[in-house]
Amino acid sequence: MLLTLAGSSCSGKTTLADALRTRMQGLVVHDHDEIGVPENADTRWRHRTTELWIGRALEYQSRGLDLLLTGQSPLGEILASPSAPLLDGIAVCLVDVADNERRRRLGARDRDRWSSAVLDAFIAWGAWHRGHAQDPRYRPNVITDGGWPEMCWDRWSAWTKDDPRWHTHLLDTTGRSIDRSVDHLAQWITQQRGASRSGQLALSNGRWLTD
């Protein structure tokens, strides 16, 4: 199955995923951007690359392995990716952090690399992720406009926030230790894998296309 840690920058996704690499059996960990990010990276590039990673997830799936992928792609982009229905299961966790803490972390990590406007964009992207996680009808144009033409948005565009298939787990790392957050994610992954094996996972085996 594919498990993703999504969200805006400096929420802790990479740090937490790295800590899980040797902790869980049968789980491989990758970052969306590790294959390289072009200078002109845009929404269309993110969509195409997400589909590439789903292809990798399917390769791992054929070997009995699950993929934990960190990146910026929210649930709506995963579900709209052409090959998503071929996955045994899909589970998304939004790794989030309070706006002021995200701004502080960005400043500490990158020093004076970003302008105030760019920092504001990171904050706005994080806020959008929160809205999208709760409601599929929250400003979908943010990810659909200018996107890759192969994306299948109609798979979920009619869903409402009460649809059980629309679920993103939330981990807020504000004020949490790394160890505590890693424990939380390990428990979440175990639960999602168990639900997938037992047929209780809402996003499994393409059933979510017709339910």
Rank of each mutant, 00 (worst) to 15 (best):
L68C: 06
D31T: 13
G131M: 12
G146M: 13
S62N: 11
R104S: 09
I90A: 04
S73V: 05
C93L: 02
T144D: 05
R102I: 04
L79K: 02
D99N: 11
S81H: 06
T49N: 10
W128D: 00
V142G: 03
P38E: 09
A91N: 03
S81P: 04
R21L: 07
R109A: 10
Q72E: 07
H30Q: 13
D88R: 14
V92A: 07
L69S: 09
D135H: 03
S115Y: 02
H47F: 01
P85S: 11
L79H: 02
R105K: 12
I54N: 01
W128I: 06
Y60V: 13
I90Y: 04
A117F: 00
W45T: 10
V28D: 06
G107L: 03
A84Y: 10
Y60S: 11
R23Y: 05
C93R: 00
R44D: 12
I78Y: 03
R139Q: 12
D88S: 14
V29N: 00
D42R: 04
A91Q: 02
R105C: 07
V29T: 04
A19Y: 01
A17R: 01
D88H: 13
D42P: 02
I123C: 02
G89I: 03
L86Q: 15
R44Q: 10
R44W: 05
R48E: 09
W53I: 11
A127T: 09
L68W: 03
A17N: 03
S115T: 15
G131Y: 12
L65W: 03
I123Y: 01
M24K: 03
G107N: 08
N100K: 12
W53C: 04
I143W: 14
S73I: 03
P136S: 09
V97Y: 02
A117K: 01
H129D: 07
R56K: 14
A124T: 13
L52K: 08
L68Y: 04
R48F: 02
R130S: 10
A121D: 13
R139H: 10
P85Y: 05
T43G: 05
S83K: 09
V97P: 01
I54P: 00
G55K: 08
D96H: 00
V28Y: 09
D66M: 11
I143M: 11
R44M: 13
L86S: 12
V142T: 13
T144V: 11
P136D: 09
V37T: 15
L27Y: 04
G55I: 13
R104N: 07
L87Q: 06
T22A: 11
I143C: 03
